[in-house]
Design a binder for these strands. Structure first.
Lengths: 159, 159
DNA sequence: CCATTTAGTTTCATTATAAAACCACACTGA
DNA sequence: TCAGTGTGGTTTTATAATGAAACTAAATGG
């Protein structure tokens, strides 16, 4: 289909989705978190068509979220690994996962548990935290546009 | 295009994306967070085609993320509002926003600031928090599959 | 009661995805 | 070293999701 790009929108959510909002992007990134690196691994575990995987990996690479490197085991094949920018998507993945566990639970319970490696203690529901690190209820959350953003919205509304 | 459904995957991220992973879904939910409720509001502010908006709102409504209710101002039109399930997507939106602010920043700075309504204090970078409420570095995060999930993965691998 | 707004639906063109076939190169074992 | 298999794609074709525009019917406002 035709597809409207979000990249020019003055909204950080939109610009993020422009990179990772495609149908398979998050799934690929998720599997990269699990340690997958090879084309075939992604392809078989996700059941994605090879041409689509090829296109998504190209997008993710160009966006600086993944990087194609020579195989660290010495073969002449390549590996796709997450960059720092890619690893930083982890909070998004965790939020998606915790929402799914809560609202579309699997019969046999949460398939994956997150743990603090040091303490071995399970990672709690994240929600939204204040500077104290406490979860705040959604009624207590407000937002404020920056002056620059306000101006852009005004201009748009004037059309 | 044809599109593979994620709904049956034993992965909470996949099942979540099956509902909100479509091109415009998050954007609609985001604008609902901002207080938009009317068909025309979404349509004009997002610049989305009306038939697509219609389809997405139908999906979101059937998924229980939004709800169509009679206009609370008394007119005979309708409003689309977030359900509890929908409001609970806020952590995902915040994670997307904070990633965008960090890695694809807008020239004029972050367009939107999140605040604690009570204290007026800005909401910090969320990251991933332990039970103490402290951000943990990504090296300290591990994951563990549930026995049920392991079994499913084994079965799939055996094919 | 007329003009405009709202909330869609319908139609048609375009393009992303899917599935399958195809291909070149790398590796492996005998 | 040579055959057979594995890897990482590309190409081709079909289909369905998106996008744009025209159209409709009811609601609203004056």
């Amino acid at each position: 289909m035709k597809r409207t790009s979000f990249s020019e929108m003055p909204c950080s959510v939109a610009r993020t989705l422009d990179h990772v909002g495609h149908w398979w992007s998050f799934m690929i990134v998720r599997n990269a978190f699990y340690g997958q690196t090879r084309f075939r691994e992604f392809q078989e575990s996700l059941g994605i068509a090879k041409n689509i995987l090829s296109a998504r990996l190209k997008d993710l690479t160009e966006a600086g979220i993944m990087k194609k490197i020579p195989d660290r085991n010495g073969s002449k094949y390549s590996e796709y690994i997450l960059t720092e920018k890619g690893w930083d998507l982890q909070p998004v993945l965790v939020a998606l996962m915790q929402w799914g566990d809560k609202w579309e639970p699997h019969e046999s319970g949460p398939p994956l548990e997150l743990l603090d490696k040091r303490s071995g203690i399970s990672i709690p529901y994240q929600g939204i935290r204040n500077t104290e690190g406490d979860v705040i209820p959604r009624e207590e959350l407000t937002s404020r546009f920056s002056p620059a953003a306000k101006e852009m919205l005004m201009k748009k509304a004037a059309e």
